[in-house]
C-alpha cells in the first residue's frame, strides 16, 4: 500500500505527542496522586533511551530481531526502574523542594554520563545504528507501525493509571499524597508504596525512551535537555495534575498545538520552524505554567475526583 499521501513529519510529530502523553500520565501518578515532585523526567526517559541504544548497538547479540530489541528495551526499563528506586529512596523523606532538586540532579547526572562516556554513547557526536525490529519495506511504513505500537503502549499506560485510580492501592497513594504521617499512623507502609510506585513509573518512562530511540534511530545528547520534562509538566499542569485525563488533554493542547497544528496547518515561513517556533514553544510552555499555577492551579479539569467516578464506585 502506498503511503505517499502521508507526511513523514506528521508521523514523527504525532509520535512525539503520544510519547509526551505517556510521560504525562506517569507523571500524574507521581505528582498528582502521590505528590512526589519529579523534575527529572528526562533523566529516567534518557536513561532508558541510552541504555537501550548502547545495548542495541554496542553489544554483539547472539540472536537477531525482535529479540535484540526486546532484550535491550527490557534492560532499559529495568535500569530506569532501578534508578527510580534509588532516587525515590534518597528523596523519600524530603519535602517537594528537596525532591525537585534531587530529581533534577539525577537528570543532570544522566546527561553528564551520556556526554562523557563517549566510547559507549558516542558523546556529543551521537550514536547511530539503531533500527526497527522489523522491516515493512519503507521507512514511512516502519515509522507508521512504530507510531501504532507506541500509541498502544501509551493506551496500556492509560489503562494502568485508570486501574490504579480504582484500587485500594490507588487510594493509599492518594492518602500518602494528602497526608503521609496520617497514612503511616494507620498501619500503612508508606515508604514502600512510594518506592514501588516511583520504580514502576520510572521503568515505564525508560521504556518510552527506548521506544523513542527506535523511532529516531540516533542517540543525541540534545534530547536530554529540559525540553521533555517541561513539555510533560506543562501539559499535565494545564490539564490538571490530579486527573487521569489531565495529561492527555493538557499535552494535546500544548505539545499537540505546537508540534502538529502549528507545524502542519498554520502557514508560516519555513525558517520560523527551525528558529523561532522551538524557542517560542519553550517560552510559551514556561509562561503557561506560571499563568495556570497563578489562576487555576488545579488545571483545566479541576479537582481530583469526578462525582461520576465516585458514584460508579459506590453503585458498583
Amino acid at each position: 500500500m502506498s503511503l505517499d499521501w502521508l507526511d513523514a513529519f506528521l508521523v514523527s510529530g504525532t509520535f512525539g505527542v503520544v510519547e509526551i502523553v505517556g510521560l504525562g500520565l506517569l507523571l500524574h501518578l507521581q505528582v498528582g496522586l502521590t505528590r512526589i515532585a519529579n523534575f527529572g523526567v528526562v533523566g529516567f526517559w534518557g536513561l532508558g533511551l541510552y541504555t537501550f541504544g548502547v545495548l542495541y548497538v554496542q553489544v554483539d547479540w547472539p540472536f537477531g530481531e525482535p529479540w535484540q530489541f526486546l532484550f535491550s528495551a527490557l534492560a532499559a526499563s529495568l535500569a530506569a526502574a532501578l534508578a527510580g528506586l534509588v532516587v525515590a529512596w534518597l528523596i523519600a523523606d524530603l519535602d517537594s523542594d528537596g525532591a525537585l532538586v534531587g530529581t533534577l540532579g539525577f537528570s543532570a547526572i544522566v546527561l553528564i554520563l551520556a556526554t562523557t562516556q563517549d566510547q559507549l554513547t558516542g558523546g556529543a557526536l551521537g550514536l547511530g545504528g539503531l533500527g526497527f525490529p522489523y522491516d515493512l519495506g519503507t521507512t514511512k511504513a516502519n515509522e507508521l507501525l512504530w507510531l501504532a505500537l507506541m500509541t498502544a503502549l501509551v493506551g496500556l499506560i492509560l489503562g494502568y493509571v485508570w486501574w490504579v485510580h480504582r484500587t485500594p492501592y490507588g487510594r493509599l497513594l492518594i492518602a500518602i499524597g494528602s497526608n503521609e504521617p496520617l497514612a503511616r499512623s494507620m498501619g500503612k507502609h508508606t515508604t514502600g508504596a512510594k518506592l514501588t510506585l516511583f520504580a514502576i513509573t520510572c521503568g515505564l518512562m525508560g521504556l518510552l525512551g527506548a521506544m523513542h530511540g527506535v523511532m529516531v534511530r540516533f542517540l543525541d545528547i540534545g534530547s536530554l535537555d529540559v525540553g521533555i520534562t517541561l513539555a510533560a509538566l506543562a501539559g499535565l499542569i494545564l490539564g490538571g495534575t490530579a486527573r487521569v485525563w489531565g495529561a492527555v488533554i493538557g499535552v494535546l493542547l500544548t505539545v499537540g498545538l505546537f508540534d502538529i497544528v502549528i507545524q502542519f496547518y498554520v502557514p508560516l515561513p519555513q525558517e520560523w520552524f527551525t528558529q523561532a517556533i522551538p524557542v517560542l514553544r519553550e517560552a510559551v510552555f514556561g509562561a503557561l505554567l506560571v499563568v495556570v499555577l497563578l489562576f487555576r492551579p488545579q488545571g483545566l479539569l479541576g479537582q481530583m475526583r469526578r462525582s461520576k467516578l465516585i458514584r460508579a464506585m459506590h453503585d458498583g
Binding site: A175, S178, N179, M186, A242, M304, M313
Partner: peptide
C-alpha cells in the same frame, strides 16, 4: 514505626489534618 504500632492496636486521631480530603467518606 507508626505503621507497626497501628497494627498492634493504636488508633490515632490528630487534631488537624485528620482525614484525607480528596477521598470519599467511604474511602
Amino acid at each position: 514505626p507508626a505503621s507497626e504500632t497501628a497494627r498492634l492496636g493504636i488508633g490515632y486521631v490528630p487534631q488537624e489534618a485528620a482525614i484525607f480530603p480528596d477521598l470519599t467518606v467511604f474511602e
